[in-house]
Amino acid sequence: MPWFRREKAGIRTTREEQNEMPEGQWVKCPETGEITNRRELEENLLVFPGSGYHFGMDSHQYFGFLFDGGDYDLHDTDLRSVDALNFEDRKPYSQRLESAMEETEQNEAVQAATGAIGGHPVSMAGMDFSFIGGSMGSVVGETVARAIKRAYTEGMPLITIAQSGGARMMEGALSLMQMAKTSAHLTRLDEAGLPFISILTHPTTGGVTASFAMLGDIHIAEPDALIGFAGPRVIRETIGSDLPEGFQKSEFLQEHGFVDMIVDRRRLRRRIIRLLNLLME
């Protein structure tokens, strides 16, 4: 497996979600209307210099700035989802998979990597919302499980970057079982006494939140990320009224005791290094 260096952060998110980076050379901050040019924004890790607004980032962009020198080894990109149920809604699942692979140029909604952070070898799994909403099917579950296994067999800390709408409906109960699979492997990491840092980014909901993403020793959220079990629309329908401002956002999660710290992406790498230094001395 070669060492990859990502020279330029390519923007290829395809969702209509509010923090998706728009096309074009000039980018407007969705919060303040401030305008900046794309290159400056990319140098600033897709965070608006003034407002601190975080645009969504894909797994390789995270790997690129988190790993020392942007160097990392990719794993398990040979894995492919199969349409085991012959699932068809308005579109066959096999077609959804094909177009997602074509658009993202990735095999699935998660990428596993190893590399060093501040000199500490680390096993990492980063998710991609642009691949069928970052949903967790068999390949996502298997890739995350292997990243966990890699951590506990090789004695490395684990870091996951969550970004997901939840379990993947088109794989039925098999995708549900990925919650069990990933959580079960984490018991072995725990036994080995190795740290697990879970990074929660916008948005992290459903089956991913209700499994590995909430099982970290340390939970780091990006500012203003939506993190929850049920989506806001479902909750609104249940209670029959609007939700309070900031409901299910990082700050709300921290206030209720589910997140250790909210860290600006521009300080994320340094924060992780400090934690690893403390834990892995």
Binding site: L74, D78, L79, R80, E105, Q106, V139, A145, M177
Partner: peptide
């Protein structure tokens, strides 16, 4: 038991776009 659950295959590894 739970590790074995899932449906997937193996194909050519996909390199990230440069």
């Amino acid at each position: 038991k739970f590790d074995a659950l899932g449906a997937y295959t193996s194909a050519e590894p996909m390199s990230p776009p440069a």
